[in-house]
């Protein structure tokens, strides 16, 4: 299979290297996205966040978990640009550090969910019949529990039962599992739109193996939908992760968490409003950026708004 795929990729490529080919098609897709206003603004915001998350550890003025007990509840000063919280921790350093974990969790969780959803959706849609019915019934059942409720119960169970587990992996797992059903539905309906097309029948008439048809012939045609899905889902994942943090069920202290920072510092709004507003603004701007980018992809690829929700 792998060997066959390799030659197939060579067969169809204008340039010899499939990676180069992919890069060039990704570049032309990006050009299209950047032609839309929302795409441009969203891309800029997301790039700023990513850059800060990457270079964060080198530019933070303080260690985010250090207490400066002499400087508790400090207003913004030259030393603490965004002030400090009730333990005198530097808010700027904590906001910068918080970006890393939340972006990591949301991205990996989404990749997991969208990958699972795409495999399930393409399989279910292409197979049809009984297999499709069974898969879709399971998906319906998974959808019967709101994802935040599921997350709360699982995290509660996991944190009580297993101490010392890195709960970012639990959150990643929950994001993956709770995104899979909705995602697989969307991908399934995109697959159903492609499946009756003649080039798929053509491939069947050539006697191509089923996995080849699903992933070589059909998948490229549903990839734009997958891209939009992934972009929207990342924003849902960010909201879920931050929401759990806000409820005190997110990644454990001392890792800085935007949601938890808002929750803790909301008590001190009258003294140091920035301590709650800064992580809140960071969170909001990132989600706004991603949603704008998703809208740009949608416009560029001409995909209608489906109204998926969290």
């Amino acid at each position: 299979m792998a060997a066959a795929d390799h030659t197939a990729a060579r067969d169809v490529s204008a340039s010899a290297n499939p990676l180069l080919r992919f890069a060039s098609s990704a570049r032309s897709a990006l050009t299209l996205i950047l032609r839309t206003t929302t795409g441009r603004v969203g891309f800029t915001i997301v790039m700023v966040h990513l850059t800060l998350a990457v270079i964060g550890p080198w530019i933070t003025p303080y260690t985010p978990t250090d207490f400066h007990l002499d400087d508790r509840f400090s207003a913004p000063t030259a030393a603490y640009w965004l002030g400090t919280d009730e333990f005198g921790r530097d808010v700027l350093s904590r906001v910068l550090a918080g970006a890393r974990s939340i972006i990591w969790i949301a991205t990996v969780g989404t990749v997991l969910g969208v990958t699972l959803g795409t495999i399930v959706g393409v399989t279910s849609g292409y197979a049809g019949g009984k297999i499709d019915q069974i898969i879709m019934r399971i998906v319906d059942w998974l959808l019967a529990i709101p994802s935040l409720l599921l997350a709360i119960l699982v995290i509660n169970m996991a944190t009580q039962r297993f101490s010392g587990v890195d709960d970012s992996w639990i959150i990643i797992g929950i994001i993956g599992i709770s995104f899979m059903p909705n995602n697989s539905r969307v991908i399934r309906s995109a697959t159903l739109a492609v499946k009756p097309l003649e080039f798929v029948e053509s491939a069947r008439l050539r006697g191509e193996p089923t996995p080849y048809i699903m992933f070589r012939e059909i998948l490229p045609n549903v990839l734009p939908v997958v891209a939009v899905e992934a972009a929207i889902r990342i924003s849902f994942a960010l909201l879920l992760t931050a929401g759990l943090g806000f409820l005190g069920l997110g990644v454990q202290e001392p890792t800085p968490d935007w949601g938890l920072m808002v929750a803790e510092n909301a008590k001190h709004l009258s003294t140091v409003p920035l301590s709650a507003l800064a992580p809140g603004f960071a969170m909001a701007s990132l989600v706004v950026g991603i949603n704008l980018l998703a809208d740009g992809i949608r416009q560029a690829q001409n995909i209608p708004e489906t109204g998926d929700s969290r």
């Binding site: 931050a242 929401g243 808002v262 909301a266 969170m283 989600v287 991603i290 949603n291």
Partner: peptide, 8 residues
Amino acid sequence: TISLPEFV
């Protein structure tokens, strides 16, 4: 507006 988290 849709993108803003409720807690923010």
